[in-house]
């Protein structure tokens, strides 16, 4: 029993990181139909930058606080430089483009930080054992920060005028303009939000899951799967989808075979896409005659 609880708990912590990444996908997709494959790189970039800052002697808290706006700026800058110039964005185009961005970012991180995986020092706190489950303080940090950040993003998108206007951009650009939000501006903000949640995910996860130049893509894809559970438009489902995925992976690793851990997410992805494709692809279907 305590084994099961142990697996579930550490799965939840990992899942919270997936959930944050998933939020980033939805934040962009809901505003402009782009699947941003570079989403995971924001996390890797944040983790590695913070490690460098800490190594250089900056205390943990200021390092973390400094890194987040930096990653947001990188995300926005990339949007300005690479996404904005494209006049007519098709799914194929956006996939290839963001894949290119992801690859370039990865390689730049490799050049700067080298191939070794490293971790941030753990946030302050003591590990505890509860009902036979050993809990790292960092895992509690992950769950707590993810909950706060996740709730804030959901609230901002669903309840503020700005958030509503941004979501409207995809469907009713005119209405959005009336509130003073141009689709260009909305896309920029959306990338900023994606950079923000990506950076947070990378920072809180780094002490346990480490950061390295090539870990963003895998993380991003898991986040994408979680986002797909919510049809790429529901922020709440994306967040919970991440938790679910994290737990599921850990259970498969614990009870079936650790080797299949990485296949779980994609089996889920294929199942979701195949069981209810009509719900997910309605917008792309040929019904526009």
């Amino acid at each position: 029993m305590s084994d099961l609880l142990q697996l579930v708990f550490s799965g939840l912590a990992q899942g919270a990181v997936y959930g944050l990444i998933a939020l980033g996908f939805v934040a962009i997709f809901a505003v402009r139909e782009i699947v941003n494959l570079a989403q995971g790189e924001y996390a890797a970039l944040a983790g590695l930058s913070a490690i460098s800052a800490v190594t250089a002697g900056v205390p943990l808290l200021p390092a973390v606080v400094l890194v987040v706006p930096m990653v947001v700026m990188v995300a926005v800058l990339i949007e300005r430089l690479c996404i904005a110039p494209i006049r007519k964005m098709t799914p194929l185009l956006s996939i290839i483009l963001t894949l290119g961005i992801s690859t370039a970012l990865k390689a730049i991180m490799l050049l700067i930080w080298g191939p070794q995986a490293r971790g941030l020092p753990a946030f302050p706190g003591r590990d505890i054992v509860l009902a036979g489950v050993s809990i790292r303080s960092q895992e509690l940090w992950i769950l707590g920060i993810s909950a706060v950040v996740g709730a804030a993003v959901v609230w901002a998108y669903e309840h503020t005028l700005l958030g509503k206007a941004m979501r409207a951009c995809a469907e009713q650009p005119v209405a959005a303009r009336l509130v003073g939000i141009s689709p260009r501006m909305a896309t920029m903000i959306a990338f900023g939000v994606a950079g923000f949640v990506g950076a947070v995910a990378g920072l809180v996860g780094s002490p346990i899951y480490f950061s390295s130049w090539d870990y963003g893509l895998g993380l991003g894809l898991k986040g994408f799967v979680a986002a797909t559970l919510g049809g790429l438009v529901s922020l709440r489902v994306a967040l919970f989808g991440g938790l679910l995925l994290g737990v599921l992976e850990n259970l498969v690793a614990g009870y079936i075979d650790t080797g299949y851990r990485d296949a779980v997410a994609f089996l889920v992805l294929l199942l979701v896409l195949l069981v209810r494709p009509q719900g997910l692809v309605l917008k792309a279907s040929a019904a526009r005659v």
Binding site: P91, D262, L269, L270, A284
Partner: peptide
């Protein structure tokens, strides 16, 4: 099954297939 998907979803399903 896969080719019934469109756009982003087909692309990412093939990506998932590759990883599997």
């Amino acid at each position: 099954p896969l080719l019934r998907l469109r756009g982003h979803f087909l692309a990412l399903a093939t990506l998932g297939l590759g990883i599997i």
